[in-house]
């Protein structure tokens, strides 16, 4: 199974970094969708089949915290794997994300770390690539 991934970050450069890093993981990737904020992210979640969301915290319009809170209220996204990728260091904020069932990756991050976390939370493996 190839993973369809949603990348939510207001910085186009950061989205490029994340997508580049995703490609370096050598994991089976399907479609990658990009959103500039939580609101756009939620809309794409409704429109597309998405297996994993990578979400920033600080974004205009709707931040990552609010996006995750809203998606967890919907039955179909209750168990959607979500990884928060941020340079946020406030332990209270990070704890809040973890309580919402998200996994936290601190920037900067290596492809190996991202790969490990994705395998861990999605169960995807290399055989799925072909």
């Amino acid at each position: 199974m190839a993973l369809n991934i949603l990348v939510v970050d207001d910085s186009s450069v950061m989205r490029s970094i994340i997508i580049k890093t995703l490609k370096l993981t050598d994991l089976p990737l399907g479609d990658i969708w990009e959103a500039e904020n939580g609101e756009e992210g939620l809309r794409l979640l409704q429109e597309k089949w998405i297996d994993l969301a990578l979400v920033d915290i600080h974004m205009p319009v709707m931040d990552g915290e609010e996006m995750i809170r809203r998606l967890r209220k919907k039955d179909q996204y209750e168990n959607l794997p979500v990884i928060v990728i941020s340079s946020e260091s406030d332990p209270c904020k990070i704890e809040m994300m973890l309580k919402q069932g998200a996994t936290f990756i601190h920037k900067p991050f290596k492809p190996e770390i991202l790969k490990e976390v994705i395998i861990d939370i999605t169960g995807v493996n290399y055989e799925d690539k072909d």
Binding site: S87, S89, K107
Partner: peptide
Amino acid sequence: NIICGNIVPYLGLGGR
């Protein structure tokens, strides 16, 4: 931005 996010916790309160 990334570097700054990694430094502020060293100012005290662990970045809170």
